[in-house]
Write a protein that binds this DNA or RNA. Structure first.
Length: 261
DNA sequence: GATGACCTGTGA
DNA sequence: TCACAGGTCATC
């Protein structure tokens, strides 16, 4: 399931392969997949004969600009992938099946040249919308500044992990990336955000940047040092202590009781 | 801010 | 058969 790194790969794939190809047909077989009042008829009217001209991203939301000015918002949910001319970007997702199952094609565009862009999503938790409200999201995690992180920590009484996963605060970090970043920073995920001192906020900011850079290079959210250990009985890759498994912010959370405080 | 709901596939 | 899954959203 995609976090910011997988979404960025999908965005880059659209940018590289789907722009400036006139759209012949729009496939919207799943009304439930269309959000915020969008209908199959509406999305067909907006995109047929149109073309994609730019692919942007904010957090996990892809924003695809079209020649007419309409912005196509694509969300991958928990199991979504973008397929262009039948091919996807990056490595197979860990929990998502990889079979090219056309029953899982929830939305798609056929280009005049014969190619296609499909959103394949077995679990149907992804979404398509038009002209999405980008401001419901906080700053993109790649662009998050130390000053921004410092301010939002000071204002939040949530566990630090829940704060980081709140897309209206920071956009793009999900369960795995948050666990990895907090593990690298040596901070307990349950710590109340406002109790982090300045050194801890700095370490966290650095750890988020490192996590995105390193895991991005390795190929995705599931390639983290801690992340690859998420199973019962696992040990901390840094100091060998048995890892702790808890629920924080509503999600399964792994952390090291020895070096995360 | 925490909780459960949403939907469906996977693996024990 | 059941627990679990990396996402978001509504509701208390």
């Amino acid at each position: 399931m995609p976090e910011i790194l997988e979404v960025e790969s999908a965005r880059a794939l659209i940018e590289a392969r789907a722009l400036h190809r006139p759209i012949a047909k729009v496939h919207a077989p799943d009304a439930w997949f269309l959000k915020r009042g969008l209908t199959a008829r509406g999305v067909r009217a907006a995109l047929t004969g149109n073309q994609l001209v730019d692919a942007r991203r904010r957090g996990k939301l892809m924003l695809v600009d079209t020649a007419s000015g309409v912005v196509l918002g694509l969300h991958l949910g928990m199991s979504g992938r973008v397929l262009i001319d039948g091919e996807a970007a990056g490595d197979p997702l860990l929990y998502a099946s990889n079979r090219p199952e056309s029953a899982w094609h929830r939305f798609g565009l056929s280009f005049v040249d014969g190619g296609s862009l499909y959103l394949r999503d077995p679990r149907r938790l992804g979404a398509v919308e038009l002209d999405p409200d980008e401001d419901r999201l906080g700053p993109d995690a790649f662009a998050l500044t130390l000053a921004e992180l410092r301010v939002m920590c000071a204002k939040s009484r949530a566990p630090i992990k829940a704060m980081l996963m709140d897309q209206s605060r920071v956009a793009g970090l999900g369960n795995l990336l948050c666990d990895e970043a907090l593990w690298r920073a040596g901070i307990d995920p349950t710590r109340t955000a406002s109790t982090l001192d300045d050194d801890e906020v700095r370490r966290l900011h650095r750890a988020i940047r490192d996590t995105l850079r390193v895991l991005g290079r390795r190929g995705g959210s599931h390639t983290g040092d801690l992340t690859s250990q998420r199973e019962p009985g696992a040990h901390c890759p840094r100091d060998g202590a048995p890892l702790q498994r808890r629920t924080v912010g509503g999600r399964t959370t792994y952390s090291c009781p020895l070096h995360q405080h």
